[in-house]
């Protein structure tokens, strides 16, 4: 995947009159955005960021190996909404049994018998473990937790994962139609 671009941040509105800009970082540690080296935009321009204060950075455009700083507010305003990417192969290799979420996106999903189920449409991570949303043809999406039990095999290079969908308790039940009758669903102190 040498040509894949991963979105790392977005340049926001200008800050002050010296060409500084607000930058929204999508990296795990927001401050690490500047540590990845030159970032590229959709037009192929390369930018070097240097943090000034929290969320505000100075920007320089790389031209012929030289840094041309963005020095005034008008030039900074022209960069508003510029999306900053990094080539996938410039990201450091993940550790053993660790995967970039961006790499999981789009992998083909197979069941244990080798039949194709669908593909990974979305990777959810809301603080309660990563889960994969598998888009299937003709039926609704399948959501599986990203665990060894549910996803025993991940082959990023081969573009496939093996999914053993966990059983679902009460899977046949539809969502409740409305508020529960009074007295039902009341809480209890364990």
């Amino acid at each position: 995947m040498p040509d894949r671009l991963i979105l790392l941040g977005v340049i926001g509105r200008p800050h002050g009159v010296r060409g500084h800009v607000h930058v929204v970082s999508h990296t795990d540690d927001p401050a690490s955005l500047a540590e990845y080296g030159p970032l590229v935009d959709e037009r192929g321009r390369r930018f070097v960021l240097r943090w000034k204060t929290d969320g505000i950075a100075s920007v320089a455009l790389l031209q012929d190996g030289r840094e041309v700083p963005v020095a005034d507010r008008d030039a900074a305003a022209r960069l508003t909404n510029t999306r900053l990417f990094i080539e996938r192969d410039r990201l450091p290799p993940p550790e053993e049994d660790e995967f970039y979420l961006a790499d999981l996106d789009g992998l083909a999903a197979y069941d244990a018998a080798g039949a194709r189920i669908g593909h990974v449409a979305q990777v959810h991570d809301y603080g309660a473990g990563v889960s994969l949303e598998i888009a299937r043809e003709g039926v609704g999406p399948l959501l599986v937790p990203f665990t060894r039990a549910a996803v025993p095999e991940v082959d990023v290079a081969g573009g496939r994962i093996v999914v053993v969908a966990p059983a679902e308790m009460d899977a046949e039940l539809p969502p409740p139609p409305g508020p529960l009758p009074r007295g039902e669903g009341e809480g209890c102190a364990p």
Binding site: I6, L7, T27, D28, D125, G127, F146
Partner: peptide, 19 residues
């Protein structure tokens, strides 16, 4: 832990280990 609003998140450099 189960947001109700559509989140078009950016995975960026986030990594995951299998639980």
């Amino acid at each position: 832990f189960s947001p109700t609003r559509t989140f078009h998140g950016h995975s960026a450099d986030k990594k995951a280990k299998r639980g």
